[in-house]
């Protein structure tokens, strides 16, 4: 079937079985390899993307389900001219990315939180990131980075 949706602000149209995982379509058909597969069962959050502004695990979404929707991946966080967002900058400055494999998903989960709450508490940050596993940082620097972006 043909599935049409908006990816990082750009309309895309793909031919695919509607039951394929959004994750696979992003990585294999659309070359968006910033979205990672860590477990394939919605436990690690490495494949997190935003659909209409809500964070989801793209391994749990059938691509047919994004027809007509807005999908944002890590590649869409920077400005069109490539300038990194404040949150991305903060991740670098605070050492929130170590091996980097959880970073794209972590950024998207944090991005949603900052859109919703301009002054989140540390506990709110932890809750917002609880679906994204990280094994390198102990989460400390990630939480610091997110808190540094509050207005």
């Amino acid at each position: 079937m043909t599935v049409r949706f908006t990816l990082n602000g750009v309309p895309v149209s793909i031919e695919s079985s509607g039951s394929r995982r959004l994750l696979d379509v992003l990585r294999e058909d659309l070359g968006k390899t910033g979205t990672k597969e860590g477990c394939g069962e919605g436990e690690c959050g490495a494949c997190s993307v935003l659909i209409d502004g809500e964070v989801v695990d793209s391994c749990l979404v059938a691509v047919g389900q994004v027809e007509g929707r807005n999908v944002l991946t890590v590649e869409g966080l920077a400005a069109p001219n490539g300038e990194l967002s404040r949150l991305q900058q903060a991740f670098i400055e605070h050492g929130a990315a170590q091996c980097g494999i959880c970073t794209p998903g972590m950024l998207l989960a944090a991005h949603v939180l900052l859109q919703r709450a301009t002054q989140p508490t540390g506990d709110q940050v932890r809750e917002a990131l609880a679906g994204n596993l990280c094994r390198c940082t102990g989460y400390t620097k990630i939480i610091e980075a997110v808190l540094s972006c509050t207005t």
């Binding site: 968006k32 390899t33 910033g34 979205t35 990672k36 991946t73 890590v74 590649e75 966080l77 920077a78 490539g82 990194l84 991305q88 900058q89 991740f91 670098i92 400055e93 050492g95 990315a97 980097g100 494999i101 970073t103 794209p104 950024l107």
Partner: peptide
């Protein structure tokens, strides 16, 4: 100092 490969990692450009 900023991590060498940090910008690539946060931009999703890093290839694993």
């Amino acid at each position: 100092v900023p991590r060498r490969e940090g910008a690539d990692k946060v931009a999703g450009r890093t290839r694993y």
